[in-house]
Design a protein around this nucleic acid. Structure first.
Ligand SMILES: [Zn+2]
Ligand SMILES: [Zn+2]
Ligand SMILES: [Zn+2]
Ligand SMILES: [Zn+2]
Lengths: 164, 164
DNA sequence: AGATGAACGTTATTATATAACTTGGAGATC
DNA sequence: GATCTCCAAGTTATATAATAACGTTCATCT
């Protein structure tokens, strides 16, 4: 699997087919280790989510399953698959977009931190210990115990700033 | 107006009627300064949002306007008022809850940072420069320019930890 | 009073997500 | 191999959140 957490993958040109393939292989391994079943449907949904580095909506997934795969799918089909992937840390939900992104380092539990480009809609996952620590510190100062973070930053990526 | 940004107001017992009243007075002043109209409806919506320290959904507001105020209200009525309040920095939207909160320091533009108690649903607004700086630094390191932050932290507040 | 434009009312629709129940199918048990 | 069991997926209906498009009212300025 390519080193995805160091330089943000979404930025740099890369072999994206390989990128998707390795994400799926990684997911298989994780599911085996966790003793959970990555069924064909769940695998396919994960693949679709991974096929772009942009957040994907549940109904976009649904459309592909219905129109492209010819599967009889209704909303629960997609949401159940997404729930499974979320529970097992294979995707993240982006609340501010009602959309989903493949997780770039699902091996270990972690918080959800994203940079989202307003122009090209690419979402880049961060894993900044500094941000998490700042949040924990701020929370502790008013006696609040953190269970989960949602950090979603909107702005402009390097490529889009150059383009404009 | 009570000092709301120092010790989190939502935590401490306080004269909440006064709390709401001063928020409204503050809003009036801001709207005058900005040359925008805080109409009766907008004022009322702001009041409802402020009447709890918990995030309030658009349809909750709608229900009060219809049932309690006897006003003929449909979703656009509420959403337009909320849009106005958002534009003028008087309320924040909490993406992870699809809900709205009165802003505790609407005098100056700032990012939205919230601690949300999983148990009592109280939402406490933070204004941590440290968090913002950590985000900006992490973004800069991969050449991303920040335009807006969404920080929504879920966990347990002091009161609820004691209660359990 | 009449013109103007913003705010609000009204109706309909779109987008997102879940509830509740049924059917199917992989793996365990006999 | 047949049966049992349980989880996954199909199915139908509905809940919840948000917006589009158009008409009406009302404050304000001339
Ligand atoms: Zn890729
Ligand atoms: Zn991740
Ligand atoms: Zn209060
Ligand atoms: Zn605020």
């Amino acid at each position: 699997m390519p080193a995805m957490s160091q330089t943000p993958l979404a930025y740099t040109p890369h072999d994206h087919d390989l990128c998707v393939k390795s994400a799926l292989a990684n997911a298989e391994a994780i599911c085996v280790r966790q003793g959970v079943r990555l069924t064909a449907l769940r695998r396919r949904v994960l693949e679709l989510v991974w096929q772009s580095h942009k957040p994907l909506g549940a109904y976009d997934i649904l459309a592909v399953l219905s129109e492209q795969d010819g599967r009889r799918a209704a909303p629960p089909t997609v949401y159940r698959a997404l729930d499974f992937l979320l529970e097992n840390g294979l995707v993240h939900r982006i609340a501010s977009l009602n959309a989903f992104m493949g997780c770039v380092h699902p091996e270990h539990a972690h918080q959800s931190q994203f940079l989202i480009c307003r122009n090209c809609h690419t979402a880049i996952e961060m894993e900044s210990q500094t941000i998490s620590e700042a949040i924990t510190a701020a929370a502790r100062s008013i006696d609040f115990v953190v269970q989960g973070e949602t950090v979603e930053v909107i702005g402009l990526c390097a490529a889009c700033r150059k383009a404009v």
